[in-house]
C-alpha cells in the first residue's frame, strides 16, 4: 500500500505476532505495521471487525496493539525499538496482559 522514500532511517527489527519485521528508526509501531503491509492491527472488542491505523495522530485509537506484553498501546505514539515484540490485539484485551 505504501512505499518508502530512499532517505529513510537506519534499520530496526521488531517482531509482529512472533514474525520478524524490518522497520526504520523513526517509525512508530503503527507506521511500521503499515510499511510492512500488515492489513489490520486489531479486531474490535464489540463485533470482532478488523481495524487498521486511521489517524496516525493519537486521536482515533484504531491502532491499539500489544507492545512488549502490554495491551492497548496506541501504536502511532510508540516509537519502534530493536527487539520490540508487537502483537495484534484480538477482540477484548485480556486483564493482566
Amino acid at each position: 500500500m505504501f512505499k518508502r522514500l530512499a532517505e529513510a532511517g537506519a534499520a530496526v527489527a521488531i517482531t509482529v505476532d512472533g514474525k520478524r519485521v524490518e522497520c526504520r528508526a523513526g517509525d512508530t509501531v503503527a507506521a511500521a505495521l503499515i510499511a510492512a503491509d500488515i492489513d489490520h492491527c486489531r479486531t474490535t472488542p464489540v463485533t470482532g471487525a478488523p481495524r487498521a491505523p486511521y489517524c496516525l495522530m493519537g486521536v482515533c485509537f484504531e491502532c491499539l496493539v500489544s507492545v512488549d506484553g502490554v495491551g492497548s498501546r496506541q501504536g502511532c505514539l510508540v516509537p519502534v525499538r530493536e527487539g520490540m515484540a508487537v502483537e495484534t490485539q484480538i477482540g477484548k484485551r485480556e486483564a493482566g496482559r
Partner: peptide
C-alpha cells in the same frame, strides 16, 4: 515522519 507514500 517516516517517508512513506502511497504506492498501490
Amino acid at each position: 515522519a517516516q517517508g512513506l507514500v502511497p504506492g498501490g
